[in-house]
């Protein structure tokens, strides 16, 4: 069997190399620049919203300000998704649109909307985390491990 498999592997490898050499690449500099400024701008908007909240509610704690800021931009991103232009921005922004927390929001809401046709219970509710599941699951698992390790190593202070 290996005698048969070998020439195929060789052929596949050769073909793979050939395909790699002819496949067009994303314009690196251009797409990096787009993701840079769109991502940077998202962060700046969040910072601005946070600063405004800090001005309006001077007696809120810093944590609370951070929380309501992220709640605000998440809501905005979901609204953008609903209105149907988040993915148009994202086509240009690439990582600048999925790495910020707005991308998380977009992933949840797009999946929720997509599976609406199967109903709110079996569609939307079941499939809401299809895209964003890896982030939530890994986040919970590894943060728990971080907490446990911290407790083990540093002890209870």
């Amino acid at each position: 069997m290996s005698a048969i498999a070998n020439p195929i592997e060789k052929r596949n490898e050769r073909y793979g190399k050939y395909v790699d050499s002819v496949t067009p690449k994303t314009g690196t500099l251009k797409s990096l620049w787009h993701s840079f400024w769109i991502g940077g701008l998202t962060c700046c908007i969040a910072q601005g919203i946070g600063d405004i909240y800090a001005l309006i509610f001077p007696n809120f704690s810093e944590d609370l300000i951070v929380n309501i800021t992220s709640m605000t931009i998440i809501t905005l991103a979901i609204l953008f998704t609903g209105l149907g232009f988040y993915d148009i921005i994202a086509r240009k922004g690439g990582a600048g649109c999925f790495l910020p927390i707005t991308g998380f929001a977009n992933a949840i809401s797009s999946a929720a909307m997509e599976y609406k046709s199967e109903g709110l219970i079996l569609g939307t509710s079941v499939k809401m985390f299809t895209v964003v599941g890896p982030v939530v699951v890994n986040g919970i698992v590894w943060s728990t491990i971080a907490g446990l390790l911290n407790l083990l190593i540093l002890g209870r202070i």
Partner: peptide, 8 residues
């Protein structure tokens, strides 16, 4: 992916 999911 879902239609509205922003991916390049």
């Amino acid at each position: 992916y879902p239609l509205e999911y922003g991916c390049q």
